[in-house]
Amino acid sequence: MNRFVVGVRANLQTFVRTPLNVVLALVLPLVVIEGWGQAMAGLPSMPTVEGIPLDLGRLLGAIFGVAIIAGLMGLVQMISAREADRRLVQTGYAPRTLLATRLATLAGVTIVVAGVNFGVLWLTIDVEAPLFVFAFLALAGVVYAFLGALVGAVLPRLFEGSLVVVFLAMMDAFLSGDSPLAADVPDFVQYFPLYHPKELLQSAVFDGTFAAGDLAFVGGYLLVLLVLVTAVFGATMRTAGGWSA
């Protein structure tokens, strides 16, 4: 039997049998998109900021909603079955195959989550290029899914790892966004995971266009994350881990 296919199927079965995952994926977008929108609606419009605050808030809420769900899913995928994973590797699964099943599952579920977020966004604001918007939301989610997986591989503790992912996503969405409260952000913010996906999304929503440079940057970002998570996961699946005596 094909190990990759069997592994992806098992991951998906595990995901949908965790009701909280499904509820979060369906409910959180509504709450986050509208919450961010209303939070920013009370802020004054700035001459340097594109779009009205309410719409911009919803846009940032959508990208944050995808990122945080995908990031937490990535984290949980790497932590929840760490010991069973080692046994699976002992049976013959190559760590890279096992990781590939995890990342493929994450990408698939993230696309669904992005679809939900896109649907909510489309119903609440005018979107110039719907397909691009959906694609860039999915891209932002995949970046955070891989980032969550990396955090889970490096820091295999659910509570601490969740704090890292949530704090990072909140700070990232806030500083990467064009919030009037974060207008003068330092240059290094452009290296944050959501900065370029947000640029892509914002252009697609308000102008129906996007900059190829932003897309290339996100592609490179994904590649770097992929290399890092592969290296760390491979190291954790090696047999020198901290098993109890």
């Binding site: 039997m1 094909n2 190990r3 069997v6 592994g7 098992a10 079965q13 595990t14 049998r17 965790t18 079955a81 010991e83 069973a84 080692r86 046994r87 699976l88 049976t91 013959g92 699964y93």
Partner: peptide, 25 residues
């Protein structure tokens, strides 16, 4: 300690680990 995947059924567990061993369906 049983190192298994809690949310899989027994049959699915066999399928997953059997694939690891390189067994046919």
């Amino acid at each position: 300690e049983p190192l298994l995947y809690d949310r899989l059924t027994v049959s699915e567990t066999f399928r997953l680990f059997g694939a690891g061993y390189g067994m046919s369906r």
